[in-house]
Design a protein around this nucleic acid. Structure first.
Lengths: 141, 141
DNA sequence: AAATTTATTTAACTTTGTTAACTATTTACA
DNA sequence: TGTAAATAGTTAACAAAGTTAAATAAATTT
C-alpha cells in the first residue's frame, strides 16, 4: 500500500473507533445518540415524517418508530397528523427539545463545536469540502 | 453559528450516519465490523493482548473477550500464552485471517481504498493531517 | 505468607438495530 | 365503483454488541 493511503487508512480507522464509542456510550438523561440526532435534525431542518428520518439516518422504519415513541414520551417532540394524507405524521421539536440541543452542557454538540473552533477557518473549510466528497463517494453505492 | 462551522457540522453528521450504518450492517460471513477491525489491527500492527485491543477500540475487556472467542473459533486468530507472565495471551492472525483482510471481495477495506483512490494525493494528505488533529482533539478528554 | 493488583472470562442485563406480520389509509384500475 | 395494490407507521420477536459485577488465575507487594 502506498504511504499516503496507509496514513489515511490508519487515521481513518482510529477516528472511526471514536465515532463508534461516542455513539455507544453517549447517553444523556436517557437520550441516546440516535435520539439526540433525530431531535437535532428536526430542529435544524424543520418538521419531517418518520420515513424521511429513516432515510436520513439509514435505519429501518421500526427503529425510527421506537425512537420517536420515546421522544414523544419525553416531550422532546410532538406529532401532527397531516389532513391531506392521514398516514403521514409530521414530527416537530418542542421547546424542551430545542433546549436539549441548545444546552451548553450538551456533549454531542460540543464535540463538533470544539473541533471547528480548534481548527483555522481555511483548514476547516478544506476539510469540510473533502469530507463532503467522501460522503458522496459513500452514497454512490 | 458561523457559516464554516455550520457546513462542517452538517457534513460531519451526515458522514457519521454512514459510519454508523456501516458498522451496524456490515456482517461478512458472521464476521462483524469490530471482529474484522480486530483481525486487521493485529495483522497490520503485529500480535497484541486483549487489554491492548480494549484500549485501542475503546470497548471493555469482556466485549473484547467475546469477540476474540469467536475469532478463535473461526480460526482467524490464534492465542499464545506468554511464559514470562501467564496472565497474558498474545493474539496473532492466522493465514486464514490474513486472507480475510487481503481478500479483494472485502467491503470494509475497499471503502477506505476507494476513498483514497478517488482523491488527489495532496488532498488526501491534507485531509489525513486534519483528521489526525481531530482525533487528537477527541483523545484529549 | 497473606493481601493486593492485573488479565481475562463468565453471567446477567441493556440498547438498538433487524425482519415479519399487522393496521390504517390512499391510490390504481377493471 | 369496488377491489387490489401500495404506502406509512406500529408491534412483536429476535440478534448483535455493548455494559457492569463477580469469578478465576497469575504476578506483585508488603
Amino acid at each position: 500500500m502506498e504511504k499516503a493511503q496507509k496514513a489515511f487508512f490508519e487515521t481513518y480507522t482510529d477516528f472511526q473507533c471514536y465515532v463508534i464509542a461516542q455513539v455507544n456510550n453517549g447517553d444523556f438523561n436517557g437520550v441516546g445518540a440516535t435520539h439526540y440526532n433525530i431531535v437535532e435534525y428536526l430542529y435544524r431542518n424543520g418538521p419531517a415524517t418518520g420515513k424521511t428520518l429513516a432515510q436520513k439516518f439509514h435505519i429501518s422504519a421500526p427503529a425510527i418508530s421506537r425512537h420517536v415513541k420515546l421522544l414523544l414520551e419525553k416531550k422532546l417532540l410532538v406529532q401532527k397528523q397531516l389532513p391531506e394524507d392521514r398516514r403521514n405524521f409530521l414530527l416537530e421539536v418542542t421547546g424542551k427539545g430545542k433546549l436539549l440541543v441548545d444546552g451548553s452542557e450538551n456533549q454531542r454538540h460540543s464535540v463538533t463545536t470544539r473541533i471547528s473552533s480548534m481548527l483555522p477557518k481555511n483548514e476547516l473549510e478544506q476539510f469540510t469540502r473533502t469530507l463532503r466528497k467522501i460522503v458522496d463517494i459513500l452514497k454512490e453505492e
